[in-house]
Design a binder for these strands. Structure first.
Lengths: 333, 333
DNA sequence: AACCGCATTGTAAACGTATTCATTTTGAGT
DNA sequence: ACTCAAAATGAATACGTTTACAATGCGGTT
């Protein structure tokens, strides 16, 4: 409630001095500082953010758009983002797109209204040219997902190599008939993981049976259903690679529902290494993404953009790694 | 970039008219509206939020503080909050307290700086008197957690009755030696669940063995460890009630690690009904909280507060219910 | 004693909008 | 054609800051 002028009056100085105490203390006499600070403390004064923002034409909140807040994978990178945001005096405005490109697009107006100084997109539902346009006008960084051919700062993992790594692991265990449950094909990330799968199969001269690759949508249920579909074929796979952990859980449960065992009858490998993968039984072998680091790096990139530092690098690809647990074993067929 | 005055100039009207087109179109001629709207469209003009906020002294962002963004339980209520927020033109600023009361307190300045018009607390790490003070000055609602004796608008579930329900269920299955893994005792919510446990036991004249109640901290790991502790006693329980699902997972895995089976040797019941409870094996019997509804109701309450409607009710207790799955069975001892 | 330089403080303008009040335009009624 | 109310518009101000610029005071130098 109390404004700067109330402070000024009580401290017997001008509002300019009060302002300076807060922003450039080195230009005001020590004694005055003390006096003003006392009054500020006394009145519990906090500068009005809107006024400051209007005057300085800069805000300290940034916008983060996630495709699905309910997905633990994203909450981990969110935590990374918020960690460095707070450290640098920024606040994060959360936008949950709820898997809708429409809602995703709605958040752009927040940027245009200057309610946020920059944006981190954990999604990729917006058309590339729109992203490019908005990125040319405001600080924007892409995390997790990326868009082909656009030159927007990005931090992600190499989904192709990750998927290749997962597939190779199965192959090295002796598996030849390997099924693949993909993510939704409208996402680059999904397409990359599929590409990695195909690359590895080709490299080892293995044929991929068209009926053994099914498209899911990253949900448990789709993993379950697609696996049931796979199991309905006369010649079932001896191993399955699911493009994310949640679908892998579905696959495992589908297999067990049919009276088969993981990994003894069918091996299953996932992707993401979410928290529950270690809790699940059997422990899920999967590709681990450095979620927290993706978040911190993305936020650092964004800060660089907002403070107009010239950056040596704007594209980061973080390492993923295979984490071994109990859902895969040697092929016994 | 373009301001209201640029629009005014191009449309050959005053800035006042432009402003009116946006906020009180009924007071301006249809023809003028059309002309102005065209220019606005043309320039892609968006009113500056800071200026508007300064002038109107009101903002449309609200602050939500969660104890742990990584906990899927909270992301579900977050989704509920954001759903009605968006519907009413509000944005949500996310504050992750990372389980630290200190960080939690740090978010209060956002309210004081008027960067947010109101706040929803999903946490309860802040001292009751501080909350009460801040709530007397700004719109604040408590969700999930609540504080004893403070009259701040609150929406929660009845943790006592939920815990009683869970315990009764075990008792009705014939269990007499029932263990309890509690949440951290500094949270009212935890204390309530414990209270419900004791109430049910007392009601059925069952003795609770002190060594069979252990304090965890809502994490998987603590559930695992506390269960191992329970199993180390000579006389082990035939059933265990864990104060949240994540700890229940830990308990189940601890039991199986000892070569015992759930539910055949020991029944386990949880609390919250998070998404993985249905995926986990055995399917976890638990108490379901209406997470989404908690979120929507909390946001509705907050909107009521912010728009200064007089409200008939400021304390909501939502229904919880028992959901049966496969982690409990009749006592066989 | 006059002057200069520096440290400290104050005055006033600007940021982009909403709104009050005054002014102009419109149109209906005579 | 003239009047008058109503409708539409414009001019000017305020919101709470930051900051460029001006003003003041003080110590030391000449």
């Amino acid at each position: 409630m109390p404004g700067i002028k109330e402070v000024a009056k009580q401290a017997n100085v001008s509002i300019a001095t009060v302002s300076r105490v807060l922003s450039k203390p080195e230009t005001v006499a020590k004694e005055t500082i003390k006096k003003v600070l006392e009054v500020i403390e006394d009145l519990n004064y906090q500068p009005n953010a809107a006024a400051r923002q209007l005057r300085m034409s800069e805000t300290t909140t940034i916008l983060v758009v996630v495709p699905d807040i309910t997905n633990t994978f994203f909450s981990d990178v969110l935590r990374g983002i918020e960690f460095v945001a707070l450290e640098n005096g920024y606040q994060v405005l959360l936008g949950d797109a709820d898997n809708s490109a429409e809602r995703e697009k709605g958040y752009l107006s927040i940027l245009r209204q200057k309610k946020a100084a920059g944006m981190i997109l954990l999604t990729a539902g917006i058309e590339a040219d729109i992203v490019e346009e908005i990125a040319s006008e405001y600080p924007v960084v892409l995390a997790c997902e990326y868009l082909e051919g656009v030159n927007v700062p990005t931090v992600s993992i190499d989904n192709v190599s990750g998927a290749r790594k997962a597939t190779e692991y199965l192959i090295n265990l002796g598996h030849k008939r390997i099924g693949f449950i993909s993510g939704p094909m409208n996402s680059v990330l999904s397409r990359d993981r599929m590409k990695g799968f195909y690359q590895a199969m080709a490299q080892y001269n293995l044929k991929v049976e068209p009926e053994l690759v099914q498209e899911g949508n990253f949900s448990y249920k789709s993993g379950l259903n697609m696996m049931l579909k796979l199991l309905a074929y006369s010649h079932t796979p001896t191993a399955v690679f699911a493009a994310n952990d949640e679908m892998a859980f579905g696959a495992v449960n589908a297999i067990e529902r049919k009276g088969l065992s993981v990994p003894n009858d069918i091996s299953v490998i996932g992707f993401d290494n979410i928290k529950f993968s270690a809790i699940f039984k059997p422990g899920l072998t999967t590709i681990s993404q450095p979620t927290f680091d993706i978040g911190t790096k993305a936020m650092e990139l964004l800060i660089g953009l907002m403070t107009k530092q010239k950056m040596k690098k704007t594209q980061y690809i973080l390492e993923n790694k295979l984490v071994l647990r109990d859902s895969c074993c040697k092929c016994r067929h």
